[in-house]
Design a protein around this nucleic acid. Structure first.
Lengths: 145, 145
DNA sequence: CTTGACCTTCCCATGATTGGAAGGACTATC
DNA sequence: GATAGTCCTTCCAATCATGGGAAGGTCAAG
């Protein structure tokens, strides 16, 4: 099976397959006499593994660890579980961060009339929180350039 | 005020200030006779604006739109509100995506014994064996090793 | 044999940010 | 003044995962 077919049946683009090979995430594929890469069923399974892990938000270096465990028949499931839990924790951190952004924005947007007048609490907030009007510059705005 | 001081009082690194200038997000700063960039109170306010918007997850091109509205004294607050709401919607999309990752991972992790045995529903799922649920994985002890 | 679809490598771009090197400018102290 | 140390300047590179595209070789069907 050549790279195009492997891409189609794994869901990983040919570009990315080459990239993963180049960066060592996957071993070098076999080659035909004319230089085409060839892929076996096991290779496809590995690519699907990678694809699925990416879908779950794992970074490529975390996937490398997962792959190592996957290949290690004497692995401890605890190690896999720990990676998964770190991933969960990382995702939850990012979610919390974004939720706090949403909360702030939602609050600001609710205070915005949203009509044709220029007054806008969103811009007011962005300008400098709690209407701190340019305190740091002792010369005042527009004087010392 | 030179760039180091501007960075400190705006929370935007000197590197990024130069980058924003280079990419046109902010106008070119004034220069001293010897080539140093100089910043006024208004400049600092603009940099703080950018910093705050970045903190709220706006991409730089969205910030460019916000800045244009900020400078436009005849803006309609509806336009600002719409940008904010698009941002909220985008964040919510990403949050939902990540939450679904967390759900899947959490489910898989709960099905994983997390001990020294190799059997692991997490790896089984990544492998692509479709059984998204399948707690049948960590069944009996000592089957394959 | 030609055509078209596929493959190869190589280079470039993204977006936001950081790092560093080489060299000039400022400031404080001796 | 001279000098040390900190600041500034520009330029170049790297990150991470991905895609685009060019130039050229290979394969299968007509």
């Amino acid at each position: 099976m050549n790279i195009g077919e492997a891409a189609k049946s794994s869901g990983v683009s040919a570009k990315m397959i080459r990239y993963y090979e180049q960066t060592g995430l996957i071993p070098s594929a076999g080659r035909t006499a004319s230089g085409y890469r060839t892929y076996t069923g096991t290779d496809i399974q590995m690519l699907r593994f990678i694809r699925r892990a990416r879908d779950l938000g794992f970074q490529v270096n975390a996937i490398a660890e997962l792959l190592a465990l996957w290949r290690d028949r004497s692995r401890h499931s605890a190690d896999v579980k720990q990676l998964a839990q770190e991933q969960i924790a990382g995702l939850r951190r990012k979610i919390a961060e974004m939720e706090s952004m949403v909360d702030t924005l939602d609050h600001l947007a609710q205070g915005c009339s949203g009509d044709d007048r220029p007054d806008c609490p969103i811009l007011a907030d962005l300008e400098g929180e709690a209407s701190l009007v340019a305190p740091a510059c002792h010369s005042g705005p527009g004087f010392n350039r």
